[in-house]
Structure formats: structure tokens, C-alpha cells
Amino acid sequence: MHRSTFYGVLAATALTAGAAGAATVDDVKERGKLNCGVSTGLTGFSAPNASGDWEGFDVAVCRAVAAAVLGDPNAVEFVPTTGKTRFTSLSSGEIDMLARNTTWTFSRDNDLKFEFAGVNYYDGQGFMVPTGLGVTSAKDLDGATVCVQTGTTTELNLADFFRKNNISYEPVPIETNAEALQQYTAGACDAYTTDASGLAANRATLENPSEHVILPEIISKEPLGPLVRHGDNEWGDIVRWTLNALIAAEEYGVTSANVADMASAPGDSPEINRMLGTEGNLGEMIGLDADWAANAIAAGGNYGELFAKNIGEDTPIGLSRGLNAQWTEGGLLYSPPFR
């Protein structure tokens, strides 16, 4: 309403209109940019690198969605969020989607009114302890001091685990991962607990990784995935099927190297043809261009490539696929069919 009075001073900083609720996809297209909420810094999942570009597994999902909708994997505005601000940012419309290693839980789905578009990483909470403690099981941690990062489901799982096993502990809540690690290395806590993926990443950064061991117990289920607001099913579908396209692409052997080739003309596999838009009209059904999935895959590669590039065994984080392997290889990744 005060647009004219505000104009001179605030023009470039203020009032980027983005209607919450209705037709997010139209807003994104009109804006030409996808606003994607990510974490303020978790190596391997989302963190700006030395030259300031966002990198990581969650970041790759944002880029894939941007590529599917806008055709440009770089048309993303990354909005760093903390554990506290992420849900408000999403429900107030500041961001279009949240890809911030967020656990899919009942109350977040139903009470906070969010829609999880799927799971991009199956995680679970574990413990890291110094080898010198001689601890082999989390149940031996009776009386221990445990560092835990606040603002996640981690501290709830921790309380539940110790309560269930009827042993005591002393929690030390820490705001950032880096500070938790500092406390842990200084011996201010006996154990550090967070998602197992994070533990592996952290262990890799320690001075002597071999002096620390990750305990075998995984005390929780942490399906991490991108989420959107309730009430905009078209947008939810776009994010969900972009993620599915990445997973299916790995299953069918479509990679960033051969996707351009395969998308140029129909091939032998009808499923791949439908997904890449050389056959049928799946793109039209979802309200995007026919080559939406091809763009998403070309952005950074299929699921397997993204995994290997950001958090896989050849990276400092060095995670194995484990639960996150394709269903054909004993994992949980199972994309519904493209037909």
C-alpha cells in the first residue's frame, strides 16, 4: 500500500512479492528464482565453500528442483535457516521449499502443516566416543556427559534412549556443530551424539580420526527430506517427483553424462522415455516443460552421482550407501514408476 512512499529508499531491498498459499510454482516462475531454505552450514549437506558457492547434498536437491521448474540449476536463492527459523520461514512464504536435513515426523506433518516430499537421506542418530574410554555400546554410557546439538529431534531421541534403558546422563546442549565438536575434543563431554551422517563427517575433521569410534547403536529413525507448505499440492508434486526422478535415474542408469543423449531421442526403455519426456506427456501433467526431469538430472547428476560427489566414500565425509542404496541393492530407495 505504501509502495510509492517506500520506493526511493527501499526499492531494491523490500517487498519482493511472493504470495504464500496459492500457486507457488507460478510465483517461482514469475520470480525466475527458487527460494530454498538450507542449513547455515553442515559440511556435505549444505555449506558455502571457500568461494562462497553453496554445495552439498541438500543443496543439490534445491538445484535439481530449480532446473526442473526454471531450466537453470543456478536460479536458486539459498536462504540459510537455523533450527528455530526454518519452519517459520517456510510457513510464512519466505522460502518455497526447505531442504535442511529435516526429519519427517508426524507432528511436523500434521501440527505444523508441512508436506514432506519424500526422503533424500535415511539417517539415524548415533554416538561418537574416544576409543580410550573403552566403551563398545551406547548402553555403557551410564553417567556420561553427552554433547548434543539443539534445535533438532536429536535431544528428544537422546532423552528417550536413556530413559528407556534406565541409565543416567548429563546433556550439554550446544548451538552449532563446530562448538559441539570443540567441547568434545576438549573432553568436556564423553560422547557426542547427532545423526550418524554428521558423526562420520565430524570424525573426519578430527586431528586423529582413528582415536574416535562411532558406536554401533543407531537409536532413532531419521528420514531426512525436503518439505513444502501444506495446501499447494501441485508444488508438492513437483518437488516430490523431481526427487523421484533423481532416484529413478540412478536405477535406470541415466547419468549427467548421458542424459542429454538419451533425452534427444526416444530410446529402448519406455520408462526412461516417459521420464525424460521423449514419450508421453508427463511434463504437461505436472505443469512443467517436457524436459523437466532431464534438466533436473543434468543439473548435478542422478541420486547416486550426487551422493558420491557430496558425501560418498571418496569425500572427506566418507559415508557408505547403507540404507540409502537402491532397493535393487538392498537399500530403501524406491521410486514409484513414471507412467
Binding site: 552450514g41 559440511t43 555449506a47 540459510p80 552449532t176 562448538e179 575434543t185 575433521t205
Partner: peptide, 21 residues
């Protein structure tokens, strides 16, 4: 979650594997 000088330190710099510690 704003990256002022303290935010840069506590966030991206200390979170990077290169400078953690």
C-alpha cells in the same frame, strides 16, 4: 542465521572441514 563476522566464524568457517578447530 545472518552471516556477520561472528556468524561467518561460527557458521561457514568453523563448519568447514578445513578450519574446524
Amino acid at each position: 542465521s545472518m552471516f556477520d563476522v561472528v556468524g561467518m566464524i561460527r557458521g561457514p568457517i568453523l563448519a568447514s572441514t578445513d578450519w574446524n578447530g
